[in-house]
């Protein structure tokens, strides 16, 4: 159940190559950190791994085969800005239940309160919204979670709460996590190994 990227290369339109020959593999239950200066394509690599972009060179395989184009995607991504990742005209319960119905236990673990479900996105703080985005990405069939600066906008207490919950779930389900962050201390806390993505 391994996620593997082989010789990935990507560029936008006719621009210069953002990166070429990138190799990465993540085992179930493994927490891998990706660090590097901004603008070198960390986010783009994450988007390729979760099939939001198609690589121009190389392949992404899950379990040795290409990721199926239909059905639930085993690699789910959580972005830095929750306010840009949710529909501002939907109430929170609709956003949360778009893909599946998370159970009470998961909601409790992430500290999502029942009362928040009837609110609009703008009535929640960034930290509260991000909990929904995390819950939404943690469907039963998620095998790998990509956290692209997932807690960068949050205060230390909320950051620790969300990571404790995600780590617990990952351990229970043997889920792999890719952590993209500039915060060295956080990376050292969470990751089994760290990849330097200096391009």
């Amino acid at each position: 159940m391994q996620l593997e990227a082989k010789d990935i290369g990507f560029r936008y339109d006719d621009g210069p190559w953002l990166f070429r020959g990138v190799n990465l593999s993540v085992e179930p239950g493994e927490v891998v950190g990706i660090t590097g200066p901004s603008g070198r394509g960390k986010t783009t690599l994450c988007r390729i791994l979760s099939s939001y972009e198609t690589p121009l060179e190389g392949t992404v395989t899950y379990n040795g085969a290409p990721i199926p184009k239909k059905g639930y995607h085993p690699v789910q991504m959580v972005l830095q800005h929750p306010e840009k990742a949710i529909n501002p005209r939907w109430k929170m319960h609709k956003i949360l239940h778009e893909g599946y119905h998370p159970d009470e236990e998961l909601l409790a673990l992430l500290g999502i309160e029942q009362e928040w479900l009837t609110r609009w996105p703008h009535e929640l703080s960034g930290g509260e919204m991000q909990r929904f985005c995390v819950a939404r990405a943690l469907g039963q069939n998620t095998r790998f979670l990509i956290a692209d600066e997932m807690t960068t906008m949050l205060d230390a207490i909320t950051q620790a709460q969300i990571w404790h919950a995600v780590s617990e779930i990952a351990k229970k389900r043997e889920m792999g996590i890719i952590v993209v962050t500039h915060e060295v201390k956080l990376m050292q806390r969470l990751c089994h190994r760290i990849i330097d993505f200096s391009g």
Binding site: G111, A156, I157, T158, A160, Q161, H164, Q188
Partner: peptide, 19 residues
């Protein structure tokens, strides 16, 4: 104090609940 303790370089222990 709780904020300080929750930092990854310190204890990384959150207090429960939210604001």
């Amino acid at each position: 104090k709780a904020l300080w303790r929750a930092l990854p370089q310190n204890d990384f222990i959150p207090i429960p609940g939210s604001q």
